[in-house]
Amino acid sequence: MRKTKFIENLIHGIFLILGLATVASVLMITIYLVVAGIPAIKEIGIFKFLFGKTWASTAAEPSFGILPFILTSIYGTAGAIVLGVPIGFFTAVYLSKIAPGKVREYMSEAVSLLAGIPSVVYGLVGMLVLVPEIRKLFHVPDGASLLAAMVILAIMILPSIIKVSITALDAVPKEYEEASLALGATPIETYFRVSVPAAKSGIATAVVLGVGRAIGEAMAVMMVSGNVPNMPSLFQSVRFLTTAVASEMAYSSGLQQQALFSIALVLFLFILMINVTLNFFLKKDGKEA
């Protein structure tokens, strides 16, 4: 009897440890980023680091200002949201409320596929289709630009926006819609003036998820944005927070490498902020339901 009790406790302990693996991982990532990221910020000075406008890490007199990266990441994400959210939103309403069963089935499959395509494949197609098209269309010397990155990111966030919005729209109680229809509203009016407002925190969640995905994307953006540390401008080659880390990591050392860790720390703080926003919407959703 004692032996079984011991075994039960032991197994309980083992499962507890397995359960805490996620917590340990988050702690490890946070600690490593903070420990690796702080020294360079201290050395450069936080103000100079965050708001410096020039990044010349390999110059004789190096300067480490990451404002261009921060702004590029923000503009790029905003652009992706502006392009991607309307398309995703209207697609989601159509698929959730109007589309016949077969269309919905095939489109869901297609959207899942879109989510599963590796980011390097997006980058590759972007490099060979989007970049030359932008160059021709807008008569700019090089199509590898912020705009190209925005378009690629908009496509990449479509699946999360569509899927999460559909889930939210499907969860709207049938009675709401029936009541609206009974009052004489047309189906379309019902969907946009009753169903969508009822699902608004779910849709907001979808948008925030899209923001998170866009700001964290590295490889696809690296392949289409040209990767020069300019201040952001639509048709200029730019560098994001993510690509700043990725592009110099391989050959960096000393203060330059530490500065890259600091960039990662800044990116991590952005992600944490997005998570807090996400939790806010999720909680709100939970309360309303």
Partner: peptide
Amino acid sequence: SGIPSIIYGLV
């Protein structure tokens, strides 16, 4: 699940 893969790579 929200952390970007580049940060995973770095850590």
